[in-house]
């Protein structure tokens, strides 16, 4: 009974907050706008505090891995040590200190850049396998379009830009067909966003627990 009441209360608060924020966006009545700004500020403060909770969660996951001697525990150990070292240095020296900035520039940036390089190889491999996975007209069109845009964008050694492909075909594909398709997809996503927002306002969807 207590559980059910808790669920009802959280649903009622979520719906009321959502309706007030929505009305505050559409109507510039000072009272509504003030309530909207206040509620959004609360959400921002909670989101900021959630980062702290998230870091504790990350620590718990990897701490458990080390404690239970699970597979990959060495990497988890490195993560825990790095987390504490960065936290202590950041608190002691402040994030803008050259040592802390250098630590970020020499660890985080190269690691992310190397993952980007791995991603380039992964995408090339995926495009090669595309026809094996999707041997249909759309798959062929997708691959041919990608090849035409690559050829049109990357100038050949000694020749430079490829005539027609670089001047006519590539701009037509990227600025007419791709933009049209992208707008269609974005309209679909926007309509989906609108309906999911309304489903939450109606209480048909409750991402805050409870049944």
């Amino acid at each position: 009974m207590k559980f059910k009441f808790k669920g009802l209360l959280s649903t009622a608060i979520a719906i009321a907050s959502g309706v007030m924020v929505l009305l505050g966006y559409f109507f510039t009545v000072p009272a509504l706008v003030n309530v909207r700004i206040e509620l959004v500020n609360w959400a921002v403060i909670l989101a900021a505090f959630a980062i702290f909770v998230g870091v504790v969660n990350l620590l718990a996951v990897h701490g458990n891995k080390v404690r239970r001697k699970e597979k990959g525990r060495f990497y988890s150990f490195i993560l825990v040590i790095s987390l504490f070292a960065t936290l202590i240095l950041g608190l002691a020296l402040r994030p803008e200190h050259p040592t802390v900035a250098a630590l970020f520039d020499s660890v985080q940036l190269p690691v992310e850049a190397s993952l980007m390089a791995v991603l380039a190889v992964t995408l090339t491999y995926a495009s090669i396998r595309l026809l094996r996975r999707r041997l249909n007209l759309v798959g062929v069109v997708f691959l041919v379009t990608a090849l035409l845009i690559l050829l049109g964008a990357a100038p050949l050694p000694f020749f430079g830009d490829i005539p027609i492909l670089s001047d006519v075909v590539r701009p037509f594909l990227t600025q007419v067909l791709a933009v049209g398709g992208a707008r269609g997809l974005l309209i679909g996503v926007a309509l989906g966003t609108l309906t999911i927002g309304l489903r939450i306002l109606f209480g048909a969807e409750r991402p805050y627990g409870g049944k």
């Binding site: 959630a50 702290f52 909770v53 998230g54 969660n57 805050y208 627990g209 409870g210």
Partner: peptide, 13 residues
Amino acid sequence: SAIAILSQDTLQS
């Protein structure tokens, strides 16, 4: 982080 907390809540529920 907020989505992580909500996912915990959803899974727990």
